[in-house]
Amino acid sequence: MDSLSGKTALITGSSRGIGKAIAKKLAAAGADIVINYRKASGSSHAQAEELRDELESLGRKTLMVPADISSKESVKGLFSNIKDSFGTLDFLILNAAKAPFKPIEKLFERELRQLVETNYLGNIFCIQEALPLMDKAGGRIVFISSLGSRYYNPSYPLGSMKAAMESVVRDCAESLRAKKILVNGVCGGIVKTDSFKVLRQYWEEIDRLPEELFVDPGEIADVTAFLCSTASTGIIGQTIVVDRGLSNSLYRTS
């Protein structure tokens, strides 16, 4: 894969899990990294600091910005920070997500609003604010989705937001291609991140899945990096499933 050196990437929700793996992968390919996480204190902040040190030891520039993407103000602050530090943005990786684990019909009104605000509106806010920074040279936007967009997972209302996300991929891919911004998605299978620890509390059978069906965060990061490279200019408006064959083997039609 070609070098991403001299490029800048923002990965939302990058102090943990898949976001962190993507940050490492893009940095290893040469990109400077904006690390975003929600809260300025607590374990995410500590993990973001660790990641920053690791990326800087590779010689990359980094910027740590705590920001809650569900807030338009907060997103504006995030991007004005990026503008001040880097001037432009090449890659926007929309990875941050937050949702309760409950059957949809049991969600309280405020939980429903938060679900949409963080996982739908938040991503749109980011795109709106990123466009001025991608104006000159174009860029890539990669959405991180999950199999919940297409298949039932118990107590997983985030799935419906991921379905909306994959629709936004198709929509923005068309409307932004004239600006030389290529939009795609990566749909991950079951990944053993912190969120998995939660999922398994609601879905006990999941522990019986054979180990080879669990996706490594690095495998999602690999495809994300590919979608940021010149090797993927032919791919527009697609969401690529990275699930080690899980959906094909378990949900196949005859």
Partner: peptide, 8 residues
């Protein structure tokens, strides 16, 4: 320094 995911 725990967060909600840490509780789980």
């Amino acid at each position: 320094g725990a967060e909600s995911l840490d509780f789980l």
